[in-house]
């Protein structure tokens, strides 16, 4: 029986939502293609990760837990995963389109001489072929591709599938045939951003500011608005104009040359809505635009718009959201 394998993105032994979404997507796909869902995780001190995966809806969890894999190594992780794939006869292999997924999956695909659709927003099984649809040209078009041979690989855009759930998967401990002396590129250090911040791509709400804020210190308006949603809910984003001006760090940039986000709610404050910015946020579930120019292109792309001065609207909105939340 052919399996749908999900490769977990586990950092510091933790499984985050995009991996659980990938298991959800795999179950959905297995419903059409047959086969069962196997999750593979590589890392160190994986007890919590194994538990989370066992309750994610997978039928089986394969864990390669060794000190060798305490830190990420693209070549090392790929090799460990390839060793496990050999026994699993995968028909399809899925992973979230996270920094790790983007780095690792093409490497695995190349070793398997297999097709990969990255950043997929839909998966297909037609006839006996797997395939996927993904945004191309920065979301200006969607491309559907079908595999011409097996296995088929895809990385999945976060926030696009329901997280899987279930319980009681069989958990198998496996090991790698090699040690840390075989690893080449190795992560030496992970410098975390302020811990009270939700990562931009995982946030349910993103409040992004642009040149309309007029000066770096005015980003306080955006930060306060984000904070109004309560702890751990909203992240702050920025347009390229303000990143290039040095007001905000590049890691906050949303758009074609920044990050692609798809939160439930995206609030664009003082952002005109240039095509390259839209590329990074147009698949958000709901888009709110705050802009003083009624003709700003962002109003064409938003669900709700409010024409006016950000300096008045942001504080009022923050208060109203706090009130609505409590």
């Amino acid at each position: 029986m052919s399996n749908i394998v999900v490769i977990a993105d586990a950092r510091e032994g933790k499984i985050k939502k995009p991996t659980l979404e990938a298991v959800g997507a795999a179950k959905e796909l297995a419903g059409k293609s047959g086969g069962s869902v196997v999750a593979v995780v590589v890392g160190h001190q994986l007890d919590a990760a194994k538990q989370d995966l066992a309750n994610s809806g997978a039928s089986k969890v394969v864990a390669v837990d060794a000190e060798t894999f305490a830190q990420y190594s693209g070549d090392g992780f790929a090799r460990a995963i390839l060793e496990q794939l050999e026994g699993l006869s995968p028909a399809a292999i899925l992973m979230p389109h996270t920094a790790m997924g983007r780095d690792l999956m093409p490497r695995i695909a190349a070793k398997l001489d297999a097709g990969l659709v990255s950043d997929a927003t839909a998966l297909h099984f037609e006839g006996d072929r797997f395939g996927a649809t993904k945004p191309v040209y920065a979301g200006k078009a969607y491309k559907k591709s079908m595999a011409t041979r097996s296995p088929f690989l895809a990385t999945l855009r976060p926030n696009n599938w329901e997280a899987g759930s279930g319980e009681g998967a069989e958990v198998v401990d496996a090991s790698a045939s090699f040690g840390s002396d075989q690893l080449k590129a190795i992560v030496k250090e992970v410098v975390s951003a302020a811990s009270d911040r939700v990562p931009l791509q995982e946030a349910k709400v993103v409040v992004a500011g642009g040149r309309g804020l007029q000066a770096p210190e005015n980003f306080k308006l955006v930060e306060d608005l984000a904070a109004a949603f309560g702890p751990g809910v909203a992240a702050v984003g920025a347009s390229r104009a303000v990143v290039d001006a040095g007001w905000r760090p590049h890691r906050e940039q949303v758009g074609q040359t920044g990050k692609v986000v798809a939160p439930t709610l995206y609030i664009a404050v003082g952002i005109s809505g240039a095509i390259q910015h839209l590329a990074g946020m147009r698949t958000s579930r709901f888009i709110v635009a705050v802009n003083k120019d009624a003709n700003a292109p962002i109003f064409k792309e938003c669900d709700y718009g409010i024409v006016g001065d950000a300096f008045e609207i942001c504080p009022a909105l923050a208060e109203a959201i706090k009130a609505a939340a409590s």
Binding site: I287, G305, I306
Partner: peptide, 19 residues
């Protein structure tokens, strides 16, 4: 290993509701 079977433009957003 893959073939493109279709390319489509996303549905155009009709423009937001101005509140």
């Amino acid at each position: 290993a893959t073939e493109t079977t279709g390319l489509e433009l996303p549905p155009e957003r009709s423009g937001g509701k101005i509140v």
